[in-house]
Structure formats: C-alpha cells, structure tokens
C-alpha cells in the first residue's frame, strides 16, 4: 500500500488552519510561518485549492479564506445554523419537559461550540451563549461528541477536583458508547451537572449533541449520583427527534 500523499496532507493542514479562525483570513506568509512550509509551496497549494473553490481571496493578491465549494460539499459537513433550525422544536420541548436550560453543541477544533441555547423556562434573567466554547472533557455535550468522534489532542485542564483525568475519561468514553448518552457531575463547575446525547445524520454519523445542565440538586437524586433517568430519557428522546429531523432515523 502506498504511503500518504504529502501534498494532500499539506493541503489539509492549510484548510484546517483557515477553518480555525471561522471568518478569519490569512496571507501566504502567515500560513507558511504557522505550518513551517516554504512560501512557494504554500502558494502552490493555495492556487490549487483556489481552482477547485476550496479557498478564495477577497481581492487578487490579498488574504485567503475558506471557499464556498467547501460549504457546499454539505453531506460531510452540517452547518451549525442548519442544525439549530432543524432542532428548534425539539430543543424547546426538551427545555419544557426537563425545566432546565438546553444547549446543542458541535466540535470546533478542541472545543465544543454552542450552536443553540434555550433558556431554562422560568422567565428568570438569562443571557444567550450561542457561539460560546466549552471544554469537551468536562461537559456531557463534549463527551457525547468525542465518544463517537476523534479524541482532540492537547492538555485537559482540571476545573474542579472532580474533573476526570485522561485514564478516567477513557473509561467514561466506553461507557458513553455503550449507553449512548453522557453526563458530567461537578466536573466543570462544583455543584453543577449535565446530561447529553448524540445527534446523528442520515449516515448515522454523530454531527452534534443536545443536552441539559443545571444544579445537581435539581438534576440528581443525590450530589454524588448521576442525573435522574427521567431526565436522561427526555434528553435521549430529544436527540432521537432531532436525528429523525436530519433523516438519521427512519421512524
């Protein structure tokens, strides 16, 4: 079997770099420094990517950004705004049943990006945190996403004495895969818990996670126990409904 093709690997690195900044734009020089590649090499890669529409320039000779063709490939990429639109009804219903705030997350680099947030239905003052980034290893959303995807590299910060270390996390991931849902207990914030379940697209690929979070007193029967199964069932039902909306389930 032939080895990996270096130029494709490099092109992928360039795309990843451009993707990290969202709407960010980078010059040839910036990319060559970041990836430690010669400028002519980077230039050649960008020219090719530009031809197929994977990158574009606002003005000739200017900075590069991700191109529209990448967004239109579609099947392998679910727009976060699209996910929110499809999930709207079911995330609302989940918030009402669980009486807790609901968030939908997708992986964005090493973090969980919140693409949708429904307030806890008590009319108290709350602030939308759509667009916020959460650490994957200390949230139910992140665990539900990573258990069915790639383990992001990088250090795992300890937020509380309950934050799991890599060994514990590894075991926890197996459990998430078995049960098809995840939770966190005091792992991000002392006294808070969260539950989440994966959302799947029509190919069965996990494209997001939906979950609730709140104080352990409301979510758990006792402070050292996982969240109540009734809440888990609401979360899983919502995840199934969104998956069905995405064509991931036929029933």
């Amino acid at each position: 079997m032939p080895g990996p093709i270096q130029s494709i690997q490099r092109a992928a690195e360039v795309l990843k770099l451009l993707a990290h900044g969202g709407a960010h734009q980078l010059s040839v020089g910036e990319i060559s420094r970041a990836l430690d590649l010669a400028k002519p090499t980077v230039h050649g890669i960008l020219r090719t990517l530009q031809e197929v529409g994977f990158v574009e320039q606002e003005v000739e000779g200017g900075k590069y950004r991700l191109g529209a063709a990448l967004f239109q490939i579609g099947t392998s990429y679910l727009d976060g705004n699209e996910l929110r639109a499809k999930a709207l009804n079911w995330s609302d219903t989940l918030a009402m049943r669980a009486r807790e705030a609901v968030r939908i997350g997708v992986m964005h680099g090493k973090h969980v990006l919140v693409v949708h947030h429904v307030f806890r239905p008590d009319n108290s003052r709350q602030t939308l945190d759509t667009g916020a980034l959460l650490p994957w290893h200390a949230t139910a959303l992140g665990k539900a996403l990573v258990a069915f995807g790639e383990w992001p590299d990088g250090d795992l910060q300890s937020f509380t004495r309950h934050t799991l270390n890599p060994d514990q996390l590894y075991l926890a991931m197996n459990e998430v895969r078995d049960r098809d849902w995840a939770y966190d207990l005091h792992e991000l914030v002392e006294g808070e818990a969260s539950v989440a379940a994966p959302i799947r697209d029509r190919r069965g690929v996990v494209v997001g996670a939906i979950g609730i979070s709140g104080p352990v007193e409301r979510l758990c029967d006792s402070p050292d126990q996982p969240p109540r199964l009734e809440l888990v069932s609401y979360v899983r039902e919502a995840a199934r409904s969104v998956s069905r909306e995405l064509g991931g389930l036929s029933w």
Partner: peptide
C-alpha cells in the same frame, strides 16, 4: 444559488 439551505444565509452573512 449562493446558499443551499435557508439556514446557511447566517453562515454566509457572518463572513463579513
């Protein structure tokens, strides 16, 4: 035809 779903308009609009 610049977007393939209605929700994508937000993605495109956020590029500026």
């Amino acid at each position: 035809g610049l977007i393939s779903s209605a929700a994508e308009i937000e993605t495109l609009a956020r590029t500026v």
